[in-house]
Deep mutational scan, measured.
Amino acid sequence: NKFNKEQQWATYEILNLPNLNEEQRKAFIDSLKDDPSQSANLLAEAKKLNDAQA
């Protein structure tokens, strides 16, 4: 299913963002699990935070 693929991709991407700390990473991944339909939005937020902390 589409959300499952998006969720897996977003999880992979978030795990590989270098500037997030473990707590932030875990929070994003927990949110992905809670609502896979928000995968794209959550990934965008994670990338923004990652860039802000660069």
Rank of each mutant, 00 (worst) to 15 (best):
A44D: 09
E6S: 03
L17F: 05
D35P: 01
Q7E: 15
K26S: 12
D30M: 11
A40H: 09
A44N: 10
P36N: 04
K26I: 09
P36L: 04
K2L: 04
N19T: 04
L15Q: 13
P36D: 03
K33A: 14
N1S: 02
L49I: 11
F28K: 01
K2F: 07
S39R: 04
N1M: 01
D30Y: 04
K2Q: 15
K47E: 04
L20F: 01
D30G: 06
I14F: 03
L42Q: 07
N41V: 09
S37P: 05
L49V: 10
N41A: 11
L49G: 01
Y12N: 14
E13W: 12
L15F: 03
P36W: 06
K5W: 04
Q8L: 09
N19M: 11
L42A: 10
S37E: 07
A10S: 03
L17M: 13
D51S: 12
L42W: 09
A10L: 04
Y12K: 06
P36A: 09
E13N: 06
F28W: 02
A52S: 06
K48I: 11
L17P: 00
N21M: 11
N41W: 06
N4H: 14
K48L: 13
L15R: 05
L42I: 13
K33S: 14
R25G: 02
P18A: 10
E13T: 08
L42F: 13
E13G: 05
L17R: 00
L42V: 14
N21G: 10
Q8Y: 07
N16M: 10
D30N: 10
P36Q: 02
K26A: 11
N50M: 01
K48F: 05
T11P: 02
D30A: 11
A46M: 01
K47M: 12
S37N: 10
K47I: 13
L20P: 00
N1E: 14
K33N: 12
N50L: 01
T11I: 11
T11F: 15
K26P: 00
S39D: 02
A46R: 00
N41D: 11
S37T: 07
N21K: 08
L17D: 01
A44M: 09
A52D: 05
S37L: 08
L43S: 03
P36K: 03
D51E: 12
Y12S: 13
L17Q: 03
A54Q: 11
K5P: 15
K5Q: 14
K47S: 05
F3T: 15
K5Y: 04
K5L: 02
N19P: 00
S39L: 09
A40I: 14
E6Q: 04
A54G: 12
F28Y: 12
W9G: 04
S37K: 09
L42Y: 11
E6G: 03
D30Q: 07
E23H: 10
K5M: 03
D35W: 10
E13F: 05
L43H: 04
K47R: 11
R25H: 03
Y12V: 06
A27D: 14
K5S: 14
Q8I: 12
D34Y: 11
I14H: 01
A46F: 02
K2M: 14
E13A: 08
A44W: 08
L43R: 04
K2Y: 10
N1L: 02
P18D: 04
E6T: 03
E6Y: 11
K47G: 03
N4K: 03
T11N: 12
Q7S: 09
A54L: 08
F3D: 15
P36M: 04
N50Y: 01
K2G: 15
N16F: 05
K5T: 15
S39M: 05
F3N: 15
L43W: 07
N16V: 06
N1P: 15
A46K: 00
F28Q: 00
A10P: 02
N50V: 01
D35E: 09
I14N: 01
K2S: 15
D30K: 05
A54S: 11
L17A: 02
D30F: 06
I14M: 04
A52H: 11
K2P: 13
I29D: 01
S39F: 15
N50E: 02
E6M: 09
P18I: 05
A46D: 00
N41K: 12
Q38E: 08
N41L: 07
P18V: 07
L43M: 06
Q7F: 15
D35Y: 14
N4W: 15
D34P: 02
Q53A: 07
A44S: 14
R25I: 06
D51W: 11
A54Y: 11
Q24G: 01
L17Y: 05
L20T: 00
A54F: 08
D34T: 11
L32P: 00
P36V: 03
L17I: 01
K5R: 02
K48Y: 08
L20N: 00
D34G: 08
D30E: 13
Q38F: 04
N19Q: 05
T11L: 15
K47W: 06
P18H: 05
E6I: 09
N16E: 08
N41G: 08
T11M: 15
N16A: 07
L17N: 01
S31R: 13
N4D: 15
P36T: 03
Q53V: 07
Q7G: 06
D34I: 11
D35G: 04
A40R: 13
K5N: 14
Q7P: 03
E23Y: 11
K2I: 15
A54N: 10
A27S: 11
E45V: 09
A27Q: 12
I14E: 01
N19D: 09
A44P: 01
L15H: 06
E23F: 11
D34K: 08
Q53L: 10
